[in-house]
Design a protein around this nucleic acid. Structure first.
Lengths: 216, 216
DNA sequence: TTCGGCCTCCTACTCGGGTAGGAGGCGGCC
DNA sequence: GGCCGCCTCCTACCCGAGTAGGAGGCCGAA
């Protein structure tokens, strides 16, 4: 009794990687692939996989909407959400739309395989790193340990980061720290690179999620 | 670098079982045992284990109270709650008092070993069966009422507001809600006017300060 | 039915945010 | 001394964000 898997990811390289990884397992078979959300919904209906590996960021229809439709259409289907980002709010949204689990792309392969077998079995599963976040959120407890990357910031960058988190503009930050706004921009660019952020909005989200403001 | 473990369980047979199981592992060492909660707190202080395997039902002081004291005394200590009963109340209570994980005694031995290594690593962990219930519980708790001050916002504006608070760009919000980004802009302008905000960064700050995200 | 609120979408514009790349000064470390 | 990391500042450029102002459709209340 093999586990039938549908791989849904818009990057063909990623799909190829999964085919390779899963192909080596006796009890797992990739029965179909999809490169966008609509296709995933369609193929899930036609191939009735036991487990769907679902990327969140996809064209046409994102992974969350696709998951919602798939689970609505077939309650027995187990969807395992896959993503590279572990600081987004997608986790909660994913659980709400009916996903059975959540795995980070950086998790080791064995963990992914274990996750597939676990959800196929009917249990739910979160990657350890994700579970930690859920627990923190659930218990409203902030860890004393700052998230990875934050310690890479220099003192000055941390100053700027805290002010960003308060909603200040670059000019305001400059006035506050007695430096020019171009300098502020320089610091900000470095901060974004180090923390892998896109813009200051994501910086604010991270600041609150990681509880940095407590230390003000 | 071995993982130092303290086993706390009032049944000597159970403790013996763990000694046996853990004794076969290279990277794990049982440094102490306790047969009740008070003893567990005491030995944890004296032996500074990396991980405490804690039974819930114990004389003198139950596992939850013991966990609370241990974590308060040493923030680096990881407590793995162990029980045969998978009653929900214990799970949430355990997480509340600072446990890092939760494992059922029926879980296979490999899973227990994996759990020990995972929490020793700093990650949190729930047994798959437990995780499933946490997810169910989590998804059931959904908000009926959006907090104060924001009642001026229309339903749609609230949708947009929540997505802004997650750090999404206008284009991403549009994709999420199946509307164009110009429509998103319209909503956003109205949101800013109603809430007296300057830009989306301040919106994120407000969202977190007012606790709107709790109602995910 | 008419009015108004809500949602949708548009053009055209301004402006702050963010990137790229470079530069100089400073202090610590080898 | 020389190298390197940090902080500072700059120009030039691109683009997303936000504003202004308008428009059409839907629906419920007056």
């Amino acid at each position: 009794m093999t586990i039938r898997v549908l791989v849904a990811d818009d990057q063909s390289m990623v799909r190829a990687g999964f085919r390779m990884l899963l192909g080596g397992e006796e009890d797992i078979e990739v029965v179909a692939e999809a490169s966008n959300g609509l296709e995933a919904v369609d193929k899930a209906a036609r191939f009735s996989p036991n487990v769907v590996l679902m990327d969140i960021r996809m064209p046409e229809l994102d992974g969350l909407q696709a998951t919602k439709r798939i689970v609505e259409a077939d309650g027995a289907a187990r969807v395992l959400i896959l993503t590279t980002f572990d600081l987004d709010e997608y986790v909660y949204e994913a659980l709400r739309v009916g996903a059975s689990g959540f795995v980070l792309k950086d998790d080791p392969p064995e963990q992914l395989l274990a996750a597939i077998r676990t959800v196929a079995d009917g249990d739910a599963l979160l990657s350890p790193a994700v579970t930690k976040r859920v627990i923190e959120r659930f218990t409203r407890i902030r860890q004393p340990t700052p998230p990875k990357g934050l310690d890479e910031l220099t003192e000055r960058e941390l100053d700027v980061f805290r002010l960003i988190a308060r909603g200040l503009s670059n000019a305001e930050i400059g006035r506050e720290l007695y430096i020019s706004d171009t300098t502020v921009k320089t610091h900000i660019t470095h901060i974004f690179q180090k923390l892998d952020l896109r813009d200051r909005v994501q910086a604010v989200v991270l600041a609150y999620e990681s509880g940095i403001l407590e230390a003000t």
